[in-house]
Design a protein around this nucleic acid. Sequence first.
DNA 1: ATGGTTTTTGCATGCGTATGCAATAGTTAA
DNA 2: TTAACTATTGCATACGCATGCAAAAACCAT
Lengths: 359, 359
Amino acid sequence: MSKKEGANKNIKSRAPTESDVAKVAGVSQSAVSRAFTPGASVAQSTREKILHAARSIGYQPNLLARSLATRRSNIIALAISNLENPFYAQVVKELSEQLAETGRHILLFTTNAEEDENQALEQALSYQVDALVMAASKASIELTMQCQKAGVPIVQINRETRLPGISTVWGENQRAGELVAAFLHASKHEEYAFVAGTKDSTISQMRQKGFIEYLSSVGKKDVKIVYGDYTFETAAIVARQLLEVEKRPDAIFCASDYMAFAVIDVATREFGLDVPNDLSVIGVDNVPESAHSAYDLTTFSQPAGSLVQEAIIIIDKMIADPGRRAIRCEVAGDLIVRGSAKRPKTGFVNNVTNKIWLP
Amino acid sequence: MSKKEGANKNIKSRAPTESDVAKVAGVSQSAVSRAFTPGASVAQSTREKILHAARSIGYQPNLLARSLATRRSNIIALAISNLENPFYAQVVKELSEQLAETGRHILLFTTNAEEDENQALEQALSYQVDALVMAASKASIELTMQCQKAGVPIVQINRETRLPGISTVWGENQRAGELVAAFLHASKHEEYAFVAGTKDSTISQMRQKGFIEYLSSVGKKDVKIVYGDYTFETAAIVARQLLEVEKRPDAIFCASDYMAFAVIDVATREFGLDVPNDLSVIGVDNVPESAHSAYDLTTFSQPAGSLVQEAIIIIDKMIADPGRRAIRCEVAGDLIVRGSAKRPKTGFVNNVTNKIWLP
DNA sequence: ATGGTTTTTGCATGCGTATGCAATAGTTAA
DNA sequence: TTAACTATTGCATACGCATGCAAAAACCAT
């Protein structure tokens, strides 16, 4: 006989269920269920009686059982990588808080390599999540199909995969590139470089496109492109490669603030350069750290809160009407002018709003 | 008639269940269940037949239903605040990855104010989570009681509440304070200050205790204490207060790296001070950013990975033996010497390991 | 008081999986 | 060949909650 079967039955007492409440309140289990269902058909008096009984025995509804019965778990799966990048930490925080407003919560999946991540996400589907949000994380075709079949909406934040049926929310990527290029060009820079993200990141490609196309249009056709893989370490490595050549760039645009930090670090510490006098650096995201004086980074903003808000709106639409097509949504950003890049001498920046416009 | 009741039944087809698989494979539902249960009693041949049938119709087990039946959800609730602090972002990442190794996942609860957070966590319990991890987040007495009653273990990471039945994992807080004090004193500083966390943070109090007790023992009895509330903004404010007096400190110890960043920012940008020549700053945590050259922060390390690892060990022990008492565990750290604080002239630092010892 | 409404309640069943128990098939030993 | 096992299978039920349906109760107007 195991020692768990002790005399004291408190030790292994089950959590109270609706049936227990029903017994105490002298009603049926269904009545209890209705008492906890907003808008259900119960007399006010019995509802109160039931709630009182529930409180007296410390009843808490079992949300798993509820989810099983209603086919709605109120759980949203979030697949995310690069959590060390403060932008994505912000996304997690925003999503968690905004979902909490409607009583929903995040089931978290952090993904590193892309090998098995989709497998992990299939598992997410097994939890009957109401939707799947992917941030800096790619959906495979198989996963998409599975979601379609299961009727689970997928929303990608800040990531683009041209698969049908996947909704996407992103920032103004191409405009970011153009605006940054215009700003840097107006500030009379000579040698330009772009620190891209990963090679297959469409987001990075769009920023690059805007950047080099604008520069090309003003005669700067030799923009150096390197890949920082969205990580601090790789960005530091490619920054070294950029800066160690004799004709080094004096303007570097980075596909993320986080990589821009690495570039600034390398430039100032390892090459003794002065930012922005020797080198201008501009990023994208406007993470809180960009405002810290250690970096004081000029950057094109990508407001995490708004991206998340749009993502949730999309999720709700897709849930309300499962048949509808994927939704794509662009969230506006702005060039935030700080001290890491030389500013144009003349009327390019609005000193009141700190915003700039294309000449 | 709604348009959802279209002729094409594919649109609203339910996800396949074990019964569907059973029908295809020509066995009973229980056989299918056993085929998916490692170690269950099924013939190898039928298991293969079942798995094949399952694959053919795209069956995925419903983990909610499984959780309901087994009373094990494989979901761990994580309550966390201060996600903007990279240390806690690291905790999330580590916990997620380490739990994934055993097929478990995080249900995330981000908490700001302390008002309703415990209410949110009661809801977590309703999801039948296997355990509750709290990081930089406080458990109320009521919540603790509820967990006890429900048999759900609680583990606090880097937070101390003297409630019975709550397990805790923390770093070497008092030693951190002592070692930092010794290091700063050996480097001949004159005026000392401590930027604490929140007033009620036991962790911060312990660091403070080690710090001022050591300093007191060497005759420095006037250490200024201010509260940075563990936020960047408040830390910046109190840093200004510290530095604007005429007899300003030349050595500031901060209860977290994140606050130390704020102090360095304010000192360098707003007061034009040189770190470390005018002012030495030391933090606690050793977050990745401390190594970035923008801060190059000397700090006492608190390895997130190890803390999380211990937390998981505790969880598993508590689950295996629900009757056992709370476990408290201290994880060792080290002083990581970088450039934000003056170094002692003589044999205090081991130049090989970069570690220091108390004289 | 009576027939007709509208609310409120309970019963029965379903959600998808796990598992004790008994029945069956398969294996071994004599 | 038969008894005695053992490995495998299916049946029935449980997990805790939601909900369609019909019965019961309450209410209303006549």
